[in-house]
Simulated scan of single mutants.
Amino acid sequence: MEIQPRENQEEGEKSPESKDLLTSRTASTLCISSRSESGWSAPPLNKWDVYHKPVIVLSVGGAVFLFGVAITSLTCLTMDKNTTMAANTTTKNPTKEIFKLCGPAFLSLGLMLLVCGLVWIPIIRKKLRQKQKYHILQSIKSFFLNR
């Protein structure tokens, strides 16, 4: 830990947050003035604001997965034709080798993004339910404390 100079300590003591915490004498105002409270008291958002990130991950994952399916199927179809025609030749085309490797890579990447998006949606739903429970408990708590 660093020892702050005397001037910095006095400035920290005069900050508006420290004055608010020092002047409050009830436990309920300490909860309200906490930094994490701003995330809980945000106005309700529409569904697109809540689910836009998982939807984007799902759509990108689906597109990459379908691209991987297309590349893999094309390389498999062309590989069968080329192996029967070129059984006597031993030279390999490097572009075909790249497509052979890229197809399964796109398949796995797309599937991974699809699964991440599908798992992300229930996590967001659970967090939204927890926020609703928190708001209900806070309203009950404030109702009984203000009497």
Rank of each mutant, 00 (worst) to 15 (best):
residue 134 Y to G: 00
residue 80 D to P: 00
residue 127 K to M: 09
residue 91 T to K: 05
residue 64 V to T: 14
residue 144 F to S: 10
residue 9 Q to L: 14
residue 121 I to N: 05
residue 130 Q to P: 00
residue 90 T to F: 00
residue 82 N to K: 06
residue 78 T to V: 03
residue 120 W to I: 00
residue 21 L to M: 11
residue 110 G to N: 05
residue 40 W to P: 00
residue 146 N to K: 15
residue 35 R to A: 11
residue 67 F to G: 15
residue 92 K to G: 04
residue 56 I to A: 11
residue 128 L to D: 14
residue 107 L to H: 05
residue 40 W to K: 10
residue 136 I to D: 07
residue 93 N to E: 09
residue 63 A to H: 01
residue 56 I to T: 13
residue 34 S to F: 02
residue 117 G to W: 00
residue 18 S to N: 14
residue 143 F to S: 09
residue 139 S to C: 03
residue 23 T to D: 05
residue 81 K to I: 08
residue 98 I to H: 05
residue 34 S to Y: 04
residue 29 T to R: 13
residue 52 H to S: 11
residue 33 S to D: 08
residue 4 Q to A: 13
residue 99 F to Q: 13
residue 122 P to S: 05
residue 40 W to A: 08
residue 129 R to P: 00
residue 77 L to C: 08
residue 26 T to A: 06
residue 112 M to S: 15
residue 114 L to F: 03
residue 88 N to H: 04
residue 139 S to P: 00
residue 56 I to Y: 05
residue 84 T to A: 06
residue 44 P to Y: 02
residue 103 G to S: 02
residue 124 I to G: 01
residue 101 L to Y: 09
residue 60 V to Q: 01
residue 69 V to E: 02
residue 40 W to E: 07
residue 27 A to M: 08
residue 49 D to W: 04
residue 93 N to W: 01
residue 44 P to W: 02
residue 61 G to K: 07
residue 140 I to L: 14
residue 132 Q to F: 04
residue 82 N to R: 06
residue 89 T to Y: 00
residue 91 T to M: 04
residue 76 C to Q: 15
residue 53 K to Y: 09
residue 22 L to W: 07
residue 82 N to S: 11
residue 142 S to T: 14
residue 52 H to F: 03
residue 123 I to L: 15
residue 34 S to H: 10
residue 137 L to N: 14
residue 110 G to V: 03
residue 107 L to M: 09
residue 122 P to W: 06
